[in-house]
Simulated scan of single mutants.
Amino acid sequence: MESTIKSDGLLVSSYIQGNEKSLEILIVRHKQRIFSFILSKIQDREISEDIFQDTFIKVINTLKRGKYNEEGKFLPWVMRIAHNLIIDHFRRNKRIPKFNNTDDFDIFDVLSDDTLSAENQIIKSQILEDVRSLIEELPDDQKEVLLMRMYKDMSFKEIAENTAVSINTALGRMRYALINLRKLIEKHHIVLVN
């Protein structure tokens, strides 16, 4: 009972200090979410189980070597490890996945990140491609404002002048473009992975 209320951080510390049971609690706590994420990308239960096991082998090795420094962010850290192993799997099989989303994702953070690893570069180009195709589905007035703002780095004042509308109208179109983009991402089940 007591173990269910311990935070991930406390369990990680406890495991590092030699309590093997703490890792078991962490695995049980997050297994469903991590395994579902892997399976959604791999689409093969057996390979997904292998990647899930490899993920936790990597987690254990990192913890045992004292290299863990993601204080309070255990689950996102494990998800990144799983994600990198999925990329490795596709690389080995010469098949780049159509990568898409996790929670709390901001497309424009990824688009503006200049310091991307090789894995993230692959994902970024896929995300750009996916987002570009979704933008094409937006109504023309929203698409125009979104492209001017995000890809041409124009101010709302410049957008308003170029489209012969008020700044408030330009802002409104941008707002609706983002709302509709979010709906399209959900409709097409696109998962944008950072």
Rank of each mutant, 00 (worst) to 15 (best):
M1T: 04
S3G: 02
T4R: 07
I5M: 09
I5D: 13
K6P: 00
S7C: 05
S7G: 01
V12W: 02
S13E: 14
S13D: 05
S14Q: 15
Q17G: 04
E20G: 12
E20T: 15
S22N: 06
I25Y: 13
I27S: 15
V28Q: 14
R29I: 09
R29E: 09
H30E: 08
R33P: 00
R33M: 09
F35P: 00
F37C: 04
I38K: 01
L39S: 07
S40A: 09
K41H: 12
I42C: 00
E46H: 07
I51G: 03
F52R: 01
F52I: 01
Q53D: 12
D54H: 13
D54M: 09
T55H: 03
F56N: 06
K58N: 06
V59A: 01
I60W: 05
L63R: 05
K64Y: 07
R65Y: 04
G66P: 00
N69D: 15
E70I: 03
G72T: 03
F74L: 09
L75H: 04
P76F: 09
W77Y: 15
W77H: 08
R80Q: 09
I81A: 07
I81H: 03
A82P: 00
N84C: 03
L85A: 02
H89G: 01
F90L: 08
N93Y: 14
N93P: 05
K94E: 12
I96A: 10
P97I: 08
P97L: 09
P97K: 06
K98V: 14
F99N: 02
N101Q: 13
T102N: 10
D104L: 04
F105V: 10
I107V: 11
F108I: 12
D113Y: 15
L116N: 08
L116W: 06
L116G: 04
E119D: 13
N120Y: 08
S125W: 10
S125D: 10
Q126L: 13
I127D: 01
D130T: 12
R132D: 11
S133A: 08
E137F: 04
E137M: 14
P139N: 12
D141S: 06
K143F: 02
V145N: 00
R149D: 01
K152M: 10
D153K: 08
D153T: 09
M154W: 02
E158Y: 06
I159H: 00
N162I: 03
V165L: 08
G172A: 08
R175S: 10
L178P: 01
I179D: 09
R182G: 12
I185A: 07
I185W: 00
I185T: 05
E186S: 14
E186Q: 15
H188N: 13
H189V: 05
I190V: 03
L192A: 11
N194S: 05
